[in-house]
Nucleic acid binder design. Structure first.
Lengths: 355, 355
DNA sequence: GTTAGCACTCTCGACTTTAGAGTGCTAAAA
DNA sequence: TTTTAGCACTCTAAAGTCGAGAGTGCTAAC
């Protein structure tokens, strides 16, 4: 279905207009706004054909035409101008990145706030899974006779901890011993490698003291298995109120409920997807996102699994701009974290001396 | 302004009705729904007087009457029936409390989810400040030559940590030494007591190694000073869509923006307030909460400062029910945590042997 | 293939009408 | 003095009417 250049031109003009001014547009209006070399009647004919092809639709007979989801799809694939970042936008991100925030979660959150501000849409972030990380450090700290803190540090510098309350008192010596054993056997392994067999190995060495062992090993597997911690960060949800397409309260509520429950948006973000994915309406695969478009970017944080960052807006989204921003941002995030990762590996090698 | 019993009865009936069916109610309708011993004309007269007194208002001349904020205030203070928890509600909370969640944040979050479900309103939680906690344990863990993890545990079992990246490599021995010094000088102190002078004391002892010291001491003060960590937990914000009083999109957006920014709701929750506070409309003190009522409960977590838990709903809130739930929940939270706290102090005393 | 012209369609806002709920007032009853 | 029946009056909300305006599709001429 190769579209004639003129049809493409007309489709592009309609969508460009519609993105900023969401009202069905007629042949005359289009002509009055743009310098096309033909008359309104010709445009009318072209538009009728574009409608037959499924790229445009009329809300009713005597109205102008609006893009369909298929129209947007074609626009995204073939028509929209290549995204360009403005100096302001790049600057806005850089200023966050230059703050030298050491906590990855915070950094990504701050960037999301910026992204949501710039685009005026909603941003959702799924942080990388920790499952595939390798363990850089593990330590048990006896706090008192019945409380032990377990601290784990991944290669990427993510620290996880938990206070474990034991049923019966245990001497610190035993804790220290277990701590050393865990260090000897687990440090340097990726989480995939800390399998049941290794844990059982430890269990046999420490056979005397099951009462510490059970919760400790429980926590380790919890950190790396459980998705609980993987909550979604949301920013700018209230932005969508701006758009007339969300003036239907019932729909808005369904949408909000979807975001709020976090389950839905989590599973949406967890789906495999290319580095940059644009999904329009039903393409999202969720009833609640039927009236939305999303631009999802994947970033990599060291050896961790992919993190995801999605911009959610109306289907008449400014695709060019959003794709540009998401692409830029995830790229920068990945390289920054990649650099850190290399740095850490270097360090870890140096460190070997101490052990 | 002592109201006659009959006026009180009529006001109560109107509000009881209005809470579940938010339409201005007229004398005849009221009579048809309830068995009052007088005619509609009498009720009409009483209602006219209640309006003069400011307890009721008419949207327009020929409509029924609806409660004013003053009316709700009187209702809350004098009319509503004492709150009773249903078996289901108590059971719902107990099932969460019995899960033995060790992380306080999670526990309070789960309870908020239950509270929001039961009430159908929005719940906001401000976690206790950590500032007043006493330090049960502090430890520096060298991870490699340039990375140190600092771990702090409060009396309540709250664990805080951070990975500190140093500009230059430092031998683990030095880290261990600093760790011991911190332990000797800081453990057991309340955070108020870890003043600048004590920190300077440490600085003089460790004069040689400023490069570790600065970020470590920085983190300590950050943990206990900064409000950053005190983010607000929100649950059930989308519930409010149900209510016809929120069908005005612009208002809804302002409200959502308020919740989302977290600044506003944080400062709202930070205000001093009695154990249970009911605020109606303007009483909330925030423009964005002008159309809402809030029931705020304070709970205490060990020696920490107060945590706050607020139910936010329309002004025609089911006050009796909500007050009962908030009261019950904050009480149970406080006692549970109080018990834990005693337990911990016991433990800490026992522990003294080890040091 | 393109365009001017024209009859036709449909929505949206403005205006009108009407049913119904509710009121306040008055005068009679308790 | 308080309560009540009765009634004229008020106001809204929903339904109906109407005309302007934007846009279309078709036809015939360029």
């Amino acid at each position: 279905m190769a579209l004639s250049p003129r049809k493409q031109q007309i489709l592009k003009l309609i969508i460009d207009d519609y993105i900023h001014h969401p009202e069905p547009i007629g042949s005359k209006t289009l002509l009055s706004r743009h310098d096309i070399g033909v008359s309104s009647a010709t445009i009318r004919n072209e538009m009728a054909e574009l409608e037959n092809l499924g790229f445009l639709e009329q809300p009713h007979t005597s109205a102008g035409r609006a893009p369909t989801h298929l129209g947007y799809r074609f626009y995204v694939d073939a028509l929209m101008q290549p995204p360009i970042l403005t100096a302001y936008e790049a600057e806005r991100f850089s200023s966050v990145l230059n703050e030298k925030i050491t906590n990855h979660d915070r950094l990504v959150e701050q960037l999301s706030v910026a992204l949501s501000e710039i685009t005026g849409y909603t941003v959702a972030v799924l942080r990388p899974e920790i499952k595939k990380a390798y363990l850089r450090h593990i330590e048990l700290l006896p706090i008192d006779s019945q409380n032990v803190v377990i601290v784990m540090v991944t290669g990427e510098g993510i620290v996880k901890n938990k206070l474990i309350r034991l049923d019966m008192g245990i001497q610190p010596q035993i804790i220290y011993r277990l701590s050393r054993i865990l260090q000897e056997r687990l440090i340097g392994l990726s989480m995939a490698e800390i399998s049941l067999s290794r844990i059982n190995e430890i269990r046999s060495v420490m056979s005397t003291n099951h009462s510490v062992l059970a919760p400790v090993l429980g926590f380790i597997s919890e950190v790396f298995e459980h998705e609980d911690e993987r909550d979604v960060f949301l920013e700018g949800a209230s932005n969508l109120f701006r758009f007339p397409e969300y003036s239907d309260l019932a729909r808005m509520q369904a949408f909000y409920r979807f975001l709020e429950s976090k389950r839905g948006i989590l599973s949406f973000l967890s789906e495999p997807s290319p580095r940059i994915r644009v999904a329009i309406g039903e393409e999202n695969g969720y009833e609640e996102l039927r009236d939305c478009s999303t631009v999802t970017g994947t970033y990599r944080l060291g050896s961790l699994s992919a993190g995801r960052l999605a911009v959610i807006g109306p289907t008449r989204m400014d695709y060019s701009k959003v794709v540009g921003l998401v692409d830029y941002l995830t790229r920068r995030l990945s390289t920054i974290m990649h650099r850190e990762e290399e740095y850490n590996e270097q360090e870890t090698r140096d460190l070997a001396r101490y052990y």
